[in-house]
Design a protein around this nucleic acid. Structure first.
Length: 576
RNA sequence: GCAUCGAUGGUCUAGUGGUAUGACUUAAGCCUUCCAAGCUUAUAGCCCGGGUUCAAUUCCCGGUCGAUGCACCA
């Protein structure tokens, strides 16, 4: 079992570096904090995690993947609120040179509502406050905005500002109208995106947990606001049970309690069926990539922790040896906030026309003014009066309207009042958005950390990455027992047949067989095929299980099919 | 970003004001009939920049990265 669990992080990262999972970026020039390279095995493993994610969201849920640029023009992030809201007001202590959050300094100094102050006001207000680091009175300081978005310009000599996206989500929102057409104007529908996002973190630490460039897998699911409690497949996860840590429990410092999704929705613990469905699906997905259920919990955001637009938000947290509970997936009900914001900023409607079952008969009163008279009489003000008249409540004598503070009486003979019954066939609805947002790098870290194990084999320590077979970078190794007597030729043929079946198989004939097994154990290859002298007689080989180190003989022509089944989980080694 | 500590082949390490020790790994060969065996050989290293010095991997200053603490983490 794991010994000295305090330094599992170091052991895992050491192994990851040595064996080609994770490398510091551009190491020959000195690495840069907050950026990492995935080596050959890491990139393969990450790809497998992403492909499992695709299976869940694209194939099973039917939400197609799109791909938007990682750079977007400023308007996108003005609308999303990132230009304004994604920055911190900061100042530098003139005594100890420490950078401080200006609003935190103000709050500590008893100044109220620092967040609504302008920078100059805030600077003046905190002049009498003390620095949290050196405890000197600050005095004259400058307050500046530090935006967490990387900024760039688009085109040569251009003033046109662009930003590297801080989340992939906005791409799905700005494509809303196209997506709606693609899905033939019907709710619900969803779009997903797996890609890089960028945040210029002030001080990234913790290896691959907090990165400046990271991979997100996000789904934006557009739902009718009245239908959030009716997920069509909710039954599938209704009895799915997992530990939920509500904000109430957090305030009382209680532990997470197991609860089924049905119960969570019925008791109002999770806001609606849609959110609960994706909470369960997320749990399912994380367990599928090899996260241990006992290391998983779902934590509800505290009311003051929630983004201002989200009505409910849950984080999937994975317990790490080094970092404690790490937020790995965020599940939010973003309501109609984003679509409204982009509709307003872009001037494009972002609504769905929902047809009623039966057209509604609605009595409507129209006021039709006699413009030929009104126009001559009121000249430049005529248009404004016309607009005011349309919503006025006329009496038998006429209508009183107010334009720019000036009152006008319009006699009844200058307009006609028409009462009509019209058919209303439906209405424009701004969909709500349910957003599961996955941090792929954090998932990869959790997979690495939880796979790491040390055990003893024949009295010798063995390091083994116990990856779930579906995320292991190399899926099977093929060894000839000896490099002679045609054993190597047969082994090469087997490796080739596996590769033709789409399986990543690695052939190895160097050194003693035991060394080769150990080498594959350390990179988490779940199975190994060995060609021995019996193979020449009966066309069978041994298949060895990484975790138990047990071996079973199977016929050569069954190798690709058996390995495939073992990898996709439809067969387990114990059943061989 | 501030403070403290650290950085020697891929990994772990010895050591030094005159270019560096050992082990493991890796590669080639021999040997070997299933879990890091053995033998031979080979490859490979003093984080970067500046200063002091005849000479710096070593001493000094600055930087980068990493660990820890503080601050930060929409």
């Amino acid at each position: 079992m794991i010994q000295g669990s305090n330094d599992v992080f170091e052991k895992v990262m050491d192994l990851a570096k040595r064996r080609g999972f994770i490398w510091p970026t551009s190491e020959c020039y000195g690495a840069v904090a907050g950026f990492i390279d995935y080596g050959p095995l890491g990139a393969m493993m990450k790809r497998r995690v992403e492909d499992i994610w695709r299976d869940f969201y694209v194939i099973q849920e039917g939400y197609y993947e799109i791909e938007c640029p990682t750079i977007a023009q400023e308007s996108v992030f003005i609308a999303s609120g990132h230009v304004k809201g994604f920055s911190d007001k900061m100042c530098q202590c003139p005594h100890c040179k420490e950078f401080l959050r200006a609003d935190h300094v103000a709050e500590a100094g008893g100044i109220k509502n620092p967040s609504i102050m302008k920078n100059e006001e805030l600077a003046a207000a905190i002049a009498t406050c003390t620095c949290a680091a050196c405890e000197e009175v600050l005095g004259t300081v400058e307050v500046f905005n530090f935006n967490l978005m990387f900024q760039t310009t688009i085109g040569p000599g251009s003033q046109r500002v662009g930003y590297l996206r801080p989340e992939t989500a906005q791409g799905m929102f700005v494509d809303f109208s196209r997506l709606l057409r693609f899905y033939r104007d019907k709710l619900p529908f969803g779009a997903v995106q797996i890609g890089k996002s960028y945040r210029n973190e002030i001080s990234p630490r913790q290896g691959m947990i907090r990165l400046r460039e990271f991979t997100q897998a996000e789904a934006e699911i557009f739902v009718h606001p009245n239908e959030k409690n009716h997920h069509p497949s909710f039954k599938r996860y209704a009895d799915y049970t997992m530990p939920l840590l509500t904000y109430i429990q957090q305030e009382k410092c209680e532990d997470a309690v197991p609860m089924s999704m049905q119960e969570a929705v019925d008791k109002g613990v999770i806001a609606n069926e849609y959110l609960a469905y994706y909470v369960a699906l997320t749990h399912h997905l994380l367990v599928t990539i090899g996260i241990k259920p006992e290391r998983l919990r779902f934590r509800q955001h505290l009311p003051d922790e929630r983004a201002h637009y989200a009505t409910d938000c849950w984080d999937a947290e994975i317990r790490s040896e080094r970092f404690g509970w790490v937020e790995t997936v965020g599940l939010a009900d973003r309501t109609d906030y984003d679509l409204n914001a982009h509709a307003k900023e872009s001037g494009t409607a972002m609504t769905v026309f929902i047809q009623y079952d039966e057209p509604k008969k609605v009595a409507r009163r129209r006021i039709i003014p006699n413009m030929s008279v009104l126009g001559k009489q009121y000249r430049t003000k005529a248009k404004a009066i016309f607009e005011a008249l349309a919503i006025a409540t006329p009496t038998a004598e006429g209508a009183d309207v107010e334009v720019d503070g000036e009152k006008f009486h319009i006699p009844a003979n200058l307009f006609e009042v028409r009462d009509e019954i019209v058919d209303i066939r439906g209405e424009e609805v701004v969909p709500h958005v349910i957003e599961p947002s996955y941090g792929i790098d954090r998932m990869c870290y959790a997979v690495l950390e939880q796979a790491y194990d040390e055990d003893t084999a024949d009295g010798e320590a063995r390091t083994v990455m116990r990856f779930s077979p579906n995320v292991a970078p190399i899926q099977v190794a093929v060894f000839p027992l000896m490099t002679r007597d045609e054993l190597d030729t047969i082994a090469h043929e087997i490796a080739r047949s596996l590769q033709k079946a789409g399986i990543l198989a690695e052939y190895d004939d160097s050194g003693a067989i035991g060394r080769r097994y150990r080498r594959q154990d350390e990179i988490g290859t779940p199975f190994a095929i060995t060609v021995d002298y019996d193979t020449k007689d009966d066309r069978t080989v041994t298949i060895r299980d990484r975790d138990s180190m047990k071996q079973v003989r199977i016929a050569i022509d069954k190798v690709p099919g058996t390995i495939s089944a073992l990898i996709d989980g439809s067969l387990t080694f114990a059943l061989l």
